[in-house]
């Protein structure tokens, strides 16, 4: 008879922290159980057979036992190590941005398989297709959608009327576009260009693997990054730490 205290899960390692003498505390985002925390006994020792399985940004399958406060991870198998991503500093920082947002938007013990798939698609695409400039923008839009904060890109979030070209602003707190008639204070809304809106709509309805390589200017990329970054920060309600590091790397390039 199967032991009900033991369970299997597939997930992305978000973070590992040294715990007790030689153990590791693992934070992961799993398809089956949402955010999970578990201890891996002796995993800090170099001879541990589990030592390489729990690096952040690794997709693993685990077998764990429920505990009173923390679960114990007994076995692990790497599904995708994302090794190309981990050999490029800029991609590592982008992967960690995905991990930080997953940690912020995911719920403990509350499965969100759609969000899990969005995160896996993004990480795998960063690993195999790093030239796609819109990887992170696709992730942000679909992360918000999977978490119940999808951005309204067709009609005004205030009056519900259809948006007319160049007659709109963008409001993170209202959850999308606002028409000029609604006259939302500039404190709560930002200008958004027609090109940015078109790219947002394309990303919103497209699978990441089918997303075309768009010849997007740096100005447009920056506009989209700022608007989506503001929206993500608004909903997660804290500063995104990996952003600072990504900006630092961009300056270094």
């Amino acid at each position: 008879m199967p032991n009900p205290r033991t369970y299997l899960a597939t997930g992305i390692i978000l973070k590992k922290t040294p715990f007790a003498e030689a153990d590791l505390l693992i934070n992961m985002f799993s398809r089956e159980h949402g955010k999970l925390r578990g201890v891996v006994k002796g995993a800090q020792k170099s001879t541990s057979r589990m030592v390489g399985h729990f690096e952040p940004l690794t997709i693993v399958e685990i077998s764990a036992t429920k505990g009173r406060t923390l679960d114990t991870i007994n076995q692990a198998q790497i599904i995708n190590n994302l090794s190309d991503l981990k050999s490029n500093l800029s991609l590592i920082s982008q992967g960690l941005y995905v991990a930080e947002l997953l940690d912020g938007f995911g719920n403990e013990s509350n499965a969100n398989p759609h969000l899990y798939n969005v995160a896996v698609d993004t990480l795998v695409n960063l690993n195999t297709n790093p030239n796609q400039l819109l990887n992170l923008r696709w992730f942000e839009i679909h992360l918000l959608k999977s978490s119940g904060f999808g951005i309204e890109l067709e009609s005004c979030t205030s009056c519900n009327n259809d948006i007319q070209p160049d007659h709109h602003r963008y409001s993170p707190s209202y959850g999308g576009l606002v028409c000029l008639e609604c006259n939302l204070s500039t404190q709560y809304s930002y200008p958004i260009s027609l090109q940015a809106l078109k790219v947002f709509r394309l990303i919103d309805r497209t699978n990441l693997l089918s997303l075309p390589y768009l010849n997007v200017s740096n100005v447009l990329l920056q506009e989209m990054k700022t608007l989506l970054g503001t929206t993500v920060r608004y909903w997660v309600d804290k500063e995104i730490r990996t952003n600072t590091f990504m900006e630092r790397l961009e300056r270094l390039d």
Binding site: S46, T47, R49, G52, H53, E55, I78
Partner: peptide, 16 residues
């Protein structure tokens, strides 16, 4: 590989 370790139980990344 660590001294005293075993190939069988090594993870894919360490082995590669």
């Amino acid at each position: 590989l660590p001294v005293g370790g075993s190939l069988e139980y090594s993870d894919d990344i360490t082995l590669s």
